[in-house]
Design a binder for these strands. Sequence first.
DNA 1: TTGTAAGCGTTATCAG
DNA 2: CTGATAACGCTTACAA
Lengths: 349, 349
Amino acid sequence: MDNTFAPPLKKSRAKPAPARVTIRTVAEDAGVSVSAVSKVLRNAYGVSDGLRARVMASIEKLDYRPSASARGMRGQSYTLGVLLTDIRNVFFAEIMEGINDTLAPTPYQPLLGVSQLRRRVERSLVDAIIDRQMDGLILVAPRMPLPEIEDVAKRLPTVVIGSHPAGTSRFDTVNNDDILGGEAVVDYLNGLGLRRITFFTLTEPDDDDDENTVMMHRERGYVSAMTRLGLDVNIERAAHDTVAEAARRLVASKDRPEAIFCWGDAWALRVISAATDLGVRIPQDIRVVGYDNNQYCELAQNSLTSVDQSGRELGKQAARLLIERIEGRREPYHFTVTPSLIVRNSTGG
Amino acid sequence: MDNTFAPPLKKSRAKPAPARVTIRTVAEDAGVSVSAVSKVLRNAYGVSDGLRARVMASIEKLDYRPSASARGMRGQSYTLGVLLTDIRNVFFAEIMEGINDTLAPTPYQPLLGVSQLRRRVERSLVDAIIDRQMDGLILVAPRMPLPEIEDVAKRLPTVVIGSHPAGTSRFDTVNNDDILGGEAVVDYLNGLGLRRITFFTLTEPDDDDDENTVMMHRERGYVSAMTRLGLDVNIERAAHDTVAEAARRLVASKDRPEAIFCWGDAWALRVISAATDLGVRIPQDIRVVGYDNNQYCELAQNSLTSVDQSGRELGKQAARLLIERIEGRREPYHFTVTPSLIVRNSTGG
DNA sequence: TTGTAAGCGTTATCAG
DNA sequence: CTGATAACGCTTACAA
């Protein structure tokens, strides 16, 4: 079930053909050759100022715009694909803004594909991006298994945000230190005198190498700090569509933990919802911590303590690294941001 | 400051050239002509079952994928552009899901551009989409003035979601009835015995034709219902970056309204935040209503009464209409969904 | 029903 | 420094 081939659609109506402005039109208008125009377009060497000026004038005058399709056939398409696995996650919006920041002054245009948490869709989107001769790819929190990512990276320059592929690497990665972030949360809560801290996270599917996900790293940070402090590890798991129930159960349970550390803000907001609903007070009866520090954390009704990982910065760096790769770098580079804990009222801050 | 032309980047490294599988490769493998393969790809008339089978087999075997760039040069690129003006607005995620729903079984691939509320960026994104020979365009809550949209619609099939351009139309529109929604909120609140109802909305920039925005239509619904009921109209305006202060002022004011009807959920959540912060109780001291019924409304800490407009359905319809247009329809079609009020605790529901 | 061949708008190579 | 010209991979008359 692939989008590659055409359906039996009615034939598309012929357009009125308003005599398109091509590189040839510009060349004629400026009284130069097409290759001269092409060189000006690409800032290639060997064009005199006079020629450049004349060409630019014609381009302006005719409002000429190069065809990305035609460009893509020979050289670059100046298009970068960004694959978002979950458009509902508002944190990703910040990453996108960072990507735009870096790309704005360049000729590269980012275009997004959204895959809705479905692995097969994710893969077919990558194919769609390759089919469109994009010059590079940024994967945001991909769910594809590592070998598949490496496969993709063989075909086009790739940068991954929000995944910690071990060892490897034909591609670059950009992350915050999720292990450190996980530890920091536990240390902070323990400093408050709390001992019964539960980590609330996503049920991992029957997958082999999901060592790489950010939640898994946060979990490792949690476990390592708990162990170091001599506290009992307690992990609660739920699937995406059962978060609400799980949160409710967790909050309502007899031996309710003193604090719940959620793998992401979205889950923490659900925990707050459950507590509100059940009349369990935050932070007096239970403390809640999230991760990502998204835009909803600071609303007073949430006032959620969370780990900030500067999504905008992650996006900026990813775009920067991708351009470097497109320009020829081959050695992998792994960029890491140090997360910082933002304390708010959900932990009594 | 446009992304059209190339920068003085280092020359991109030549790739190892792993002998690309083209339509020609497939033709040779299957022992047929290229045009035969092309016909199979497009489900064109005049191909025998035998030939089709052989071609399909080769395609499968060689894992051939057509180049969208090459296709775009002659025929369609099978790519649809979706222009999101504000990726932070979670409601748009639902629209996107609807678009995906409709497009999944077709050969069209939606690709998103995000413009971050900046009008110039919005226009240059549209250009980028045109440059890439996309087959159609979906504009979500565009800020471009109407003449500009019409201009765009002349160049490629266009559908607009979340805007009410008067009269006109070389393009289709998909909306909920924002006037009706606005009225419904007022009628509901008045039915609760409330009379002092304030509408909290976006400051319109010095723009002529912003009669078209959804907030303006909601405002019209509000005004019309208030007038009909003989109540005093009260409208509070703020810019995007001053919502928090404005909300605070509104909630803290001496003659605080009995209810605040916000143009969108995001603003309503800010109002709830201000009230929470100031110790003003909801719904006892003040009632709050939003619009969009986004995923955060149902969290208990918000429990926000809101107008549902079925974003997913809007997205589905938009994609459907766009495909119809690409297939040749020229008469404009305007699709409208009837909104429904979802009552929650923020109004005592 | 199938095949041949002429573009589509660029870039890149190679002469002038 | 400038200009012909051959690709690039596909669609589409038109011929066979």
